[in-house]
Design a protein around this nucleic acid. Sequence first.
DNA 1: TTGTACGCGTTATCAG
DNA 2: CTGATAACGCGTACAA
Lengths: 364, 364
Amino acid sequence: MTRKKPTIKELASAAGVSVGTASRVINNHPNVGEAVLRRVNDAIERLGFTPDSAAQSMRGGATRSIGIIIRDITVPALASFTRAAQDALHDAGYVLFILCSTNSKERELELLEVLRKRRVDGLIFAPSSERDPDILAACRRLDLPILLLDRSSPQEWDALLVDHETGMGEAMDHLLSLGHRRIGLVTGRPVVRPSSARIDAYRKKLMEAGIDYDPTLVRTDGFDLDSAFFEASALLSLQDRPTALIAGGIDMLGGAIRAIRAAKLSVPDDISLIGSADTELATFSTPATNVIRHDAAEQGRLSAQLILSRLAGRTGPDSHRLTLSSQYVMRGSCAPPAGHSPVKRAQKQKRRGGNDELVGADTK
Amino acid sequence: MTRKKPTIKELASAAGVSVGTASRVINNHPNVGEAVLRRVNDAIERLGFTPDSAAQSMRGGATRSIGIIIRDITVPALASFTRAAQDALHDAGYVLFILCSTNSKERELELLEVLRKRRVDGLIFAPSSERDPDILAACRRLDLPILLLDRSSPQEWDALLVDHETGMGEAMDHLLSLGHRRIGLVTGRPVVRPSSARIDAYRKKLMEAGIDYDPTLVRTDGFDLDSAFFEASALLSLQDRPTALIAGGIDMLGGAIRAIRAAKLSVPDDISLIGSADTELATFSTPATNVIRHDAAEQGRLSAQLILSRLAGRTGPDSHRLTLSSQYVMRGSCAPPAGHSPVKRAQKQKRRGGNDELVGADTK
DNA sequence: TTGTACGCGTTATCAG
DNA sequence: CTGATAACGCGTACAA
């Protein structure tokens, strides 16, 4: 039974070689004698030797670890993202420090400090604001490759972006074609791309349909479930309340549903509903909820790939940006507004709910 | 703008002191001169100095990091657990390496190796089997404080346990009182406490009710959603299918619901349904699903506390174990079996679904 | 092909 | 109270 973690010195003496030779075997350098190699490998096996990564980091500089700061690992889409990124990084020999910011600036700064101490080799980050100078300064002093998650600025860093516009556009098209003219939108504050992109697409589609933009129908606060509940409730208690509601955040559908229930409304008869991530909740709600879907796991894999490629030596001021598509998935949560002449045929199909679903155009 | 990460040597010379003094200031040792202290702290601020934790680990031994190996961070209850544990550990100055095993033995061994290299100070672990000798050996060679998550053996390690018996017992009592006599149970393989405890409680309650135990009604495979779907489907396609179904795993409710839908059955009229974690899905499903609830976040906090206390010096062969209660939450997913004389009054209340819920006895 | 010796950034010990 | 120095485990020039 092996006791304490053996050092390379012990390994060397056990194999009857010098530490230099032992090190060469460990990192399989070219010039090692046949017999010596076997002897050392044997000892490695016998002692259960593993190089101490702290010491390695100190010598070589790299820690083979990268950090991620996200809002909350408790949000299903973010968990999927993180899981996928971690798996990919693991395969490349990296470990991932997963840190949750709760979308708080103070906490973000604190976590950046943690990562600085730990000297991670890279950072995947979705800051709570794209323009906060303190956060940007803290990032810069890290002096690391950074991959922004769905944040478009600053331009100097790589970014993995989601094309919210397309999915949102398809969703709006659908609602408008059903006859909705008052469409509520709850999302995060527009200091961050996912919100602003959604709002842009929302306004654009309204304009195309010749409908005036009514700012009271767009409520922006946190991306979290509680904010969603609160803001959705506000919309639903308007005297001229919207006939459709879009939850513009991956964790907001639950809050919206809760608000709708609290208002004793039913989906889709009283109000049509669209969510922004394809979760268990969206699938199993009754009726199943239409969502703007994007593949979180794929985003995680690609993020890992992007940052690894950067770590692998790509350097210079040219930043890489990757944009992933989103698509609108129709299920049973949308219908013509009450009092509107219904398009029976199409509606019946959609209302069947559950497994058979229609995916919007941009499927490829 | 601070460039590279400054070393203690640079800090010392910037402050005009020796590295020894600098170090003393950093770790606020008692004997430091008033003026020198100010001078050094000033330089720390100015340079943005942070001690390199790799170097610290090398010197002191401790890495101030602890590892957790869990099934899948994508499972909501596990995400909540992990998040809470991480927050508590963060407050104590530790970082948490979150690693996902997918309940695979090979992967577990691989991840244990990762943690060995990284020299974490402690491990929180829910192994896929309580008795697998390879895993136990790998754990032992880590030579670390280990906290088992809902695993009762081996006894030598601390453990945080969930009292599945109580919640399961209450659930069974409810079903039996409604008149169910054929109750299906899908759960994980009984190589692990959560499964075996559930099965034990299930059998005990049946026996008390004078009902013969029918092994065809208990299906054990993975704890994951797909296994749940598959095993639940098998139960539902029995010629004499159960009138109630318990999903005995924190990630299994979705699979059970999917199976029920695929079988074109409806809850609770055709079949009563009980889940094992209080998730969004359980809350927002229609009808809202009865669950056996336990507080994952609280478990996370307590786990952190337990392992910290162990790290703080508690030593010796005496292991600490903490058991947390579970409780049965009644909502709208259970009813008397079809054809059974219904208890109308009680049922109506439960069927109202949604927010008003009745919590089982053990509420304290 | 192999061994020796130095340095990475810290902290702790020991003199002064 | 402060400064110099050894040691932690490893990789790598450089020497043999």
